[in-house]
Amino acid sequence: MFNPLKNTNRTMTPLALFVVAIIVLLSASPVLAEYADVVLNRHAEAEGVRPVIYPHWFHRIRFRCKVCHHELGFQMKVGSNDITMAAILDGKFCGMCHNDETAWGLEHCHRCHSGLPGLKTGIRGDNKAGGPGDY
């Protein structure tokens, strides 16, 4: 058993350990975007609303991929679906579910338009994943 009270041979002073501990704590701290969150901001900010954050993690608890990416026809590539508010209000894309039936309706603008100003369209992840080609 390691007994710090007996260890007279130590090479690290408590001060050095203190510094290391601070560095360890700081480097572990940053909170990052949840893996597979998608930012949609091709029109939103230019039209005066916050960018949209689409959370994969939240939806995949409730729907299998095939519901959106097969049945509802979402292409599996960020930016490849021409998602506009007009199309959504017309019952397409997010509007296929956010219609007060499968999910809450479109009057809750800010649940979708929830992003910080200036976000770029694309998929987000932790330090290990920034999307395909940037694992």
Partner: peptide, 18 residues
């Protein structure tokens, strides 16, 4: 401070956290 959500957004507190 996930660099994504705007804490000023009116629905910020309505969203579920992972």
């Amino acid at each position: 401070n996930d660099g994504l959500h705007d804490p000023q957004g009116p629905s910020f507190n309505e969203l579920q956290r992972p």
